[in-house]
């Protein structure tokens, strides 16, 4: 599984990365997490409110920090 956290480096974006990584640790799901700050790439996903989360190429969330339950639902848990 390939997870991308998108954000220019604001506080909420880092929080999002933390939540995603925590859930991965808790559920034991194997996934790579990449943090993307390049605005052109972020816009390429059609996201214009950060933070955003992309799982396997599909945009799952934009504009807020996800709850753990939300992250779990993307992982199919």
């Amino acid at each position: 599984m390939e997870i991308k956290v998108l954000g220019p480096g604001c506080k909420k974006c880092h929080e999002t990365e933390k939540v995603v990584k925590e859930v991965l640790r808790e559920t034991g799901v194997e996934a790579s997490v990449e943090y993307i700050t390049d605005i052109a790439k972020i816009a390429g996903y059609g996201i214009f409110t950060t933070p955003g989360v992309v799982v396997d190429g599909k945009v799952k969330l934009a504009g807020k920090v996800p709850s753990k339950a939300e992250v779990k639902s993307w992982l199919g848990k």
Partner: peptide, 16 residues
């Protein structure tokens, strides 16, 4: 609702 750290992506989103 919009935080100023999103100003760039939002700008691009609007212009595009």
């Amino acid at each position: 609702p919009f935080c100023s750290c999103s100003a760039c992506p939002l700008f691009i989103g609007f212009v595009t």
